[in-house]
Amino acid sequence: MKKIRNILLAMPIVLMLVNIYLIFLVAPTDINLGHIQRIFYLHVPTALLSFVVFFTVAGLSVSYLINKNKAVDRLSQALAEVGLVYVTLALITGSIWAKPVWGVWWTWEPRLTTTLILWFIYVAYVMVRSYTADTNRGSKFAAVLGIVGGINVPIVYYSVMLRSIHPGPVIGDETKLPDSMLWVLVFSLITFGVVLLALVKERHFTLYADQVISDHKLRRQQKSII
């Protein structure tokens, strides 16, 4: 059992090292942007995964409210926490990328704004849970937020898009990515995905252990009363 866990922990580290090698030494330097374009392999996977994770949390939240399965709730909590780390990363790296390329740290463009709102919803999700004394209630509230957030994100995207239709710079005119870059991106996406799963697995274990310990305490209290 321990061996399997060690392998699972080693895999993301190995992948990450290979990923670094690919990003800095194999991927071609962008003709228009130069080396700074290499942030792309960090920014795009984290941003993409944080949205995937968030919609997964929304789905799990629906399932939790219907079936009240505690394992589902623990999984969504672990996912949301790691998702918060990822979305924070996506925002920071995006901003660092934007400064030299666009000349500003931030623009209120639909994708950026939606990501920022996603960040706020993630923060609220984690906060509501930890600020509610009763854990069952906290889980329910978090699930409610997960669902409302999942519905809200597309609406925010759409309304910000409508707002910025008139003026604004043309950003992200997607010219086709050359294959050599695409493969590095795919590899990076897989790497960050595996890292995400490893982090979620570890966080899930601590949540599970918390549950076991509190159940145990409860049983002991009941015994001592009898």
Partner: peptide
């Protein structure tokens, strides 16, 4: 918590 919950969600209708 009230502000953190309500503000991001009502953003579309505010816009």
């Amino acid at each position: 918590i009230m502000y953190i919950l309500i503000l991001p969600v009502v953003l579309p209708i505010l816009i």
